[in-house]
Design a protein around this nucleic acid. Sequence first.
RNA 1: CGGGGUGUAGCGCAGUCUGGUAGCGCACCUGCCUUGGGCGCAGGUGGUCGCAGGUUCGAAUCCUGUCACCCCGACCA
Length: 568
Amino acid sequence: MRLSKYFLVTTKETPADAEVVSHQLMLRAGLIRKLGAGLYTWLPLGLRVLQKVEAVVREEMNRAGALEVLVPPQVPAELWQESGRYEKYGAELLRFKDRHQRDFILGPTHEEVITDMARRDIRSYRQLPVNLYQIQTKFRDEIRPRFGVMRAREFLMKDAYSFHLDEADLMREYRNMREAYRSIFTRIGVDFRIVKADSGAIGGDRSEEFHVLAASGEDLLAVSDGSGYAANVEAAETRPQGARGAAVAALEKVSTPTQKACEDVAALLGIPLAATLKLIVAKGRDGGLVALALRGDHVLNAVKAEKHPLVAAPFTLASDAEIRAAFGSEPGFLGPVGAKIPLVADHAAAALSDFVCGANETGFHLRGANWGRDAAEPPTADLRNVVSGDPSPDGQGKLTLVRGIEVGHIFQLGRKYSEAMHMTVLDEAGKEIVPEMGCYGIGVSRIVAAVIEQCNDAAGIVWPEPLAPFRVIVCPIGLEKSPAVKQAAEKLYEELAAAGVEVLLDDRGLRPGPMFADADLIGIPHRIVIGDKGLANAQFEYKRRGAAEPAMIAAMAQAVLERIKIAA
RNA sequence: CGGGGUGUAGCGCAGUCUGGUAGCGCACCUGCCUUGGGCGCAGGUGGUCGCAGGUUCGAAUCCUGUCACCCCGACCA
C-alpha cells in the first residue's frame, strides 16, 4: 500500500478526553474515531488490526473443532423472557420496539438464540457434542463506557456455545476451549493469565477468565507466588490463618463521639487498623437482617457474601433505618457484643482477640472485646476480598495482587439455559435428557486495546508481529529529489509486495522527521530507510520497531526478507 | 443513577470574572525553499462560540432551561 493513497490520519497531540494510553494511541495513530460515547468507527488501519485478531481467533476455533455460525443481533424479546433474563439482565440490555410494537433486544450475548436453534435442530445424541461460535458485534447499554474500545457500547465478540450429553463431555470441551484460548493469546503475543472467576450474569457453575496483564486494567487479580493459583479478586479465596490469641484485656467502653469508620477509631486509640472489627449489615435470606463481621482493614466481597445461606441474593445492604431499629445505634458504632441479629464472621475477623468494635451505642466503641467471652462464638465464612500477602488457598505461597484486562471468559453453564428453554435430546436408550452446555467468549475489539496497553513506548504502538496492520514500512529520504532513492524504493516495494509481504511505501514526500514519527506511532514492526548515503554503498537501513539502533543491510529485497523472517 | 467537570475551527487551547468587530498553536490548501527524527518564508481555507429561550442599544461573555461529552463509584468481553 502506498501511503499517498491511504487514509492515514495521525496527530501529534493527544486528544484531551482519552485517559488510557491505548485509547490515546488508537486515536493518534488513526485506528479509530469516536462517533458518540462508547461508539467508535474503525478506520482502515485499525480495521486491519481488528481483522488480524479475528483471523487468529477464527483459525484456532476452527482448529479446535468449533463450527462458525452467524445469528441475528436483533432478538425477539420472548426468547429472553423465556430464560428469565429479559427482567434480570437489567438496564444494560438494549431494548426496542418495532413498528408493530413488538419487543426486541439487541443481543449482548446469545445463549438464548443458540439454545433456541439447538433445541429445534438437535434431537439425537448422535448430533452431540457440538460447539457453535460466531464473531459478531454485541450491544450493551454500558453504565459508563470508557477507555475507547476497551469498554464500548458496541464491541466485536467471539462467542461460542457447546452442547453435551453429559458433564464429563462438557468438561472435556471446556478443557479443549481452555487450550484453544491459550493458543490464541499466545499467538497474539501478549502476557496473559488464566484466573478463576465469578460467573456473573451469564450464570453457571464454573468459569475462568483470561486476562492481559496491564497496570491500567480494570480488574484486580490475586496470583500466588508459590503455585499456579490465580483468581479474580471477586472469586479469590484464602485460607484461615493463625490461631486466635488468648483473651487478655478486660472489656472497656471508650468514647468515640465522631469516629464512625474503623480508620478513625484506630487513629484515635492509636492501634493498628487490623485490630479493629466492623459489622456490615445486609438483608438476610429469611427476610430479616444478618450482620457480617470483618476485620477493620478488610473489604467485604459481596459475591462471596451472597453465596452464604444466611445472606439474601442479590446482596443488599440494610438501610440506616433498619440498622437503627435492629441495633438501637447509629451505623458506625456496631459490634457483635449484644447484637440481636444473626451474625457471620469472616475467618480473619473470627481470629481476632482483644479487638476494638462498636458498642452498639451511638458515640461509643468497645476495646478488649473477645469472641466466646463477650460475644457468642460466631459461625465463620470467607466473606472478604483477599489482600496482598494472604496465603494461597492451596497452601502454597502467598497471594499478590496485579491488574488485568479481561479479554476472554469460559463457562461451564451446566443445564441453566437448556433447562429453562426446555431443550431435550434422546439418548442411546431413547430417553429424553437435558444437555449440558458451555459457553466461551473473547472480546475481539478489546484485545486490540489491551495489546496496545502492553505493547507501546514513548513513540507510539509497538505491534506484536501477528497483529501489525503492515509488516514493513519503506521510508525513502529525499524522494522528490533523488531519482536513485525513488527508483530503489519503488523497486523494493514492488518486490516485497510480490513476495506476499504486507508492505507500506511512504511516498508522501515528507521530511524524515514526520515520516519516522508516523512509522513509529503506527507501530510497523520493520522499517527500511532508503537514502542516497546508504545507496552509495548499496545498502538499506533496517530497524526493528522498538530496537535501539538500526543496522545496515544489502540493498536487495532478499536481504529484507531474510531480516523479517528472522525477526518474525 | 449519584458526585465532580467541560462544551469556542479537524486537534490542543485562550478569550467568559469586568458584555462592545472571535483569537493563538498544530493540522489543511497554494507558491517558493528544504530533505537522516515532527524544517523555513509568504499567502490562504475553515467557527451562527453545544442548543433553545431571556436580559440588553449590543451576548462566546449575564440569567433560565436543555443536550452532549469527560472523570470518580456499583457492571462486564
